[in-house]
Design a protein around this nucleic acid. Structure first.
Lengths: 204, 204
DNA sequence: ACCTGAACACCGTTCAAGT
DNA sequence: ACCTGAACACCGTTCAAGT
């Protein structure tokens, strides 16, 4: 009953190594990945169907981590905000992954279950049924856009021209890097929720 | 004085063909591009330094098209909205370009001049100097996120599961495809501006 | 100055051959 | 069932050679 040769790979091992590679290099190359796993590149294809499938699986992993909005009796604005913060935090933990996710369109509805919860919260808040999907789109766009902002280096805001006085002063007075991205996200989220709140109270 | 052999390429021709290729195929392959131009692939490198430079130049072209916010006496919320609509429209004309732009971080501050105008409008509206950059980040994130939403196919919202009742009903009641993306963008933009307006009036 | 073909290093993926 | 090496088609880019 001598045991067979040791199993070298598993889906989870492939995904772990993929994420590590992306975090470290910002790219996902099958050769890199194979080396990281101590395995031939062709071996990987026995566990996943290819590079695109790996990225898609990482997307699913990411959404799975996000806490769904708490369905307790608390204020709906608080619930939505809480969910959005968790959403962005999950993205922010692997900023290099974000461009790979946006380069590839979602194949199956990975985060669909979370959206069901968000839909329920919005509905409960008084959002008309025809607008629920629209608001989910808005929140999703903002979360993803903010995440991309997080992945970008801060050099964008550095320049030496003297024809941009207001911008120059504003940049000097604003936080930098991760702090800027965090503060901006919080500000926009608050505005979005406030805007939705106003719309709901004035509309009904 | 026999004229030299005809000049086959120019930067503009390269950029035009690149955009056409991206619009048609969603990708930018140098071989495709060369064929489109009726030229050898290596010729292209006499006019641009490489693939990344082409994408960066296309980004600059895109921002150049966007109308800066009108600095007339009109309401600042209207000005910001007008600029955002133009921003997104420019992106929406070439949805396939968007993932390429997000995959590559901005090298130089291409749209910086427009940001100066936006900064001036925000400042004029009463946004404190330390928050101007934050609001620009918010607007930028939302415009880019909405554009990505536009580039994604609508299949994301199609599913056949019976454990998502609220979402299913919401999807049935919402517009589809481009119409959904457009309506969502307008809704979120209105909320953002309303939220900012509320913050300014309550803060001062 | 501009264009070319050949070559290079590097991709993701396939597949017959091994255990 | 799982892993391998070799091979394949395809990338972006370089460069000596032509005009």
């Amino acid at each position: 009953m001598a045991q067979r040769r040791k199993r070298l790979l598993s889906i989870d091992a492939v995904l772990d190594a993929s994420l590590a590679s992306i975090d470290a290099t910002g790219r996902l190359a099958m050769a890199d990945l194979a080396e990281r796993l101590g395995v031939s590149a062709s071996s990987i294809y026995h566990h996943v169907s290819g590079r695109a499938a790996i990225i898609e699986a990482l997307r699913e992993r990411l959404v799975a981590v996000i806490e769904p909005p708490p369905m307790d009796g608390s204020d709906w604005g608080e619930q939505i905000s809480r969910w959005m913060v968790g959403y962005r935090r999950a993205l922010a933990e692997h900023p290099n992954l974000i461009p790979l996710l946006t380069a590839q369109t979602m194949t199956d509805g990975s985060g669909l279950l979370a959206y069901e919860q968000v839909a329920a919260v919005l509905r409960h808040a008084g959002v008309p049924i025809g607008e629920v999907v629209l608001w989910i789109s808005v929140l999703d766009a903002y979360a993803l856009g903010s995440a991309l902002d997080l992945a970008a280096p801060d050099d964008v805001w550095r320049f030496d021209r003297d024809d941009l006085p207001v911008l120059a002063e504003a940049i000097g007075a604003a936080p930098v890097g991760r702090k800027r991205a965090d503060a901006a996200f919080a500000l926009g989220l608050e505005a979005l929720v406030a805007g939705l709140r106003r719309r709901l109270s004035s509309g009904s």
